[in-house]
């Protein structure tokens, strides 16, 4: 869990959310840009998940480990779920659905970082 990674996730998620809202405003469905953005976000999240698991195995434990694991597992599913849903949505609102998923990832990344910093014994 490094702040650098959390910032990278936040920036990517924010850009993806903006791209999603932009496509809704433009009255278009999502395009390749959104798919690449979601893919990049997913890769960053998977790196973060692997890193966190390695640290957990090494013995670093956040105070609230069950919640931390819940967030860790949930956050990697969001870009996938958001993308699948947005791809099946034939209207301009597909971008906003993706933006909701991306925004949630951004918030959850910071919550994960908070949970990690509250390290227990």
């Amino acid at each position: 869990m490094t702040p650098v990674l959390v910032v990278a996730v936040t920036v990517t998620a924010a850009l993806l959310a903006l791209a999603g809202i932009a496509s809704t405003l433009a009255g278009r469905r999502i395009g390749l840009l959104h798919l690449w953005g979601a893919a990049l976000l997913e890769v960053l999240l998977l790196v973060q998940a692997v890193l966190a698991v390695v640290l957990l195995v090494r013995g670093d434990r956040p105070a609230d480990t069950p919640t931390f694991l819940g967030y860790l597992a949930g956050i990697v599913l969001l870009p996938v779920a958001g993308t699948l849903w947005a791809r099946s949505e034939p209207t301009r609102w597909a971008g906003t659905v993706l933006a909701v998923a991306a925004g949630t990832v951004g918030v959850m990344a910071w919550r994960l970082q908070q949970l990690w910093e509250a390290t227990g014994g």
Binding site: T67, G70, G74, G82, W85, E89, P90, T91, W93, A94, T96, V97, V100, A101, T104
Partner: peptide, 22 residues
């Protein structure tokens, strides 16, 4: 089912998940 309603369902889904997990 479609359009703007999807966004509403998406946000509700996120909250169902967040509140449920919590």
């Amino acid at each position: 089912a479609g359009g703007a309603g999807r966004v509403l369902v998406a946000v509700y889904g996120v909250f169902a998940l967040a509140a449920g997990a919590r």
